[in-house]
Design a protein around this nucleic acid. Structure first.
Lengths: 149, 149
DNA sequence: CTTGATGTAACAATAATAGTTACATCAAGG
DNA sequence: CCTTGATGTAACTATTATTGTTACATCAAG
């Protein structure tokens, strides 16, 4: 599909910040995060900027600058992370509008729009089942256990 | 997201073929389908080729050539159409592998893989709820005037 | 005032998407 | 057997999305 890796990167960022925050409360820099994610710090800052607008993280400037979580990791669901990125759903309608003088071309878009909307709802509902904290704990345990108590 | 329109085009193709088949059993050409979808016939043939491999449609060559449904539209779900296109899920893992010397970088991919896998299952389950026939009937009920297909 | 990091803009490289041209291939029907 | 019209694909283009990169103004603590 058209899959991009932005949710992956965003979740990785928050998970790493959570892990670090368990031993130190200091802000972490985009450069250090980038070392774990293995990408450029600007990519990290772009994503952090979106998550800051969504109220998930805070930036700090001046000396000892960097980023901190705005909430506990147990209170951040993947749904909120996904929403912070401002992405649309996985399916698009026609690249150029279909033929309006055909009953199918005229009527199919609203119908497909509803189908795709239901899918988006479903995706959001599923993403809301997992928090960053759960995901980090699973990551650290290295086991294959399913999530959710 | 990088949403593409292939499922939309595929569903449009099958819906249009179903509508036409209600009055004539003859094969329809990619060129005629392209007029309704408003794109190039080759785009239509590419998608039809994938759906033929999946057993959803049949191609006919020689004189009076074209395409026909391989099954009744009530027996084709959106899930099968989607599967025929051979697309992956909406979310990708890291573009370049994360830092393996970090606990998060080392462990997050399998965990995210399971999260994304659960989403793919959910999407498939939802798509399996709708048939081409249902979708066409909804499409036609939304349009008022009958017109040439 | 120095310092180190944020916040953005601008650009580059790569890949995906959709559209297009061209043509060999096929099979029905004259 | 030859004409015909459409399939089936390869190859190419144009456009856009994605990711990565460079550069630099801005900020606030010390």
């Amino acid at each position: 599909m058209s899959a991009n890796s932005r949710l992956t990167v965003a979740v990785h960022i928050l998970s790493w910040m959570t892990l670090v925050a368990r031993t130190r409360a200091d802000p972490v820099t985009s450069e250090r995060i980038a070392l774990s994610v293995n990408t450029n710090p600007v990519v990290i800052r772009r994503t952090l900027g979106l998550m800051q607008k969504a109220g998930l993280v805070r930036s700090h400037r001046g000396a000892n600058a960097g980023w901190t979580l705005a909430r506990s990791a147990g209170a951040i669901t993947l749904r909120e992370v996904f929403a912070a990125l401002g992405e649309g759903g996985p399916f698009a309608l026609h690249p150029s509008p279909p033929n309006a003088s055909c009953p199918v071309g005229r009527g199919i878009q609203p119908v497909l729009g509803r189908v795709y909307g239901a899918l988006d709802d479903l995706i959001e509902r599923q993403l809301s089942q997992t928090t960053i904290e759960q995901l980090l704990d699973e990551t650290l345990s290295g086991t294959s256990e399913p999530n959710r108590p």
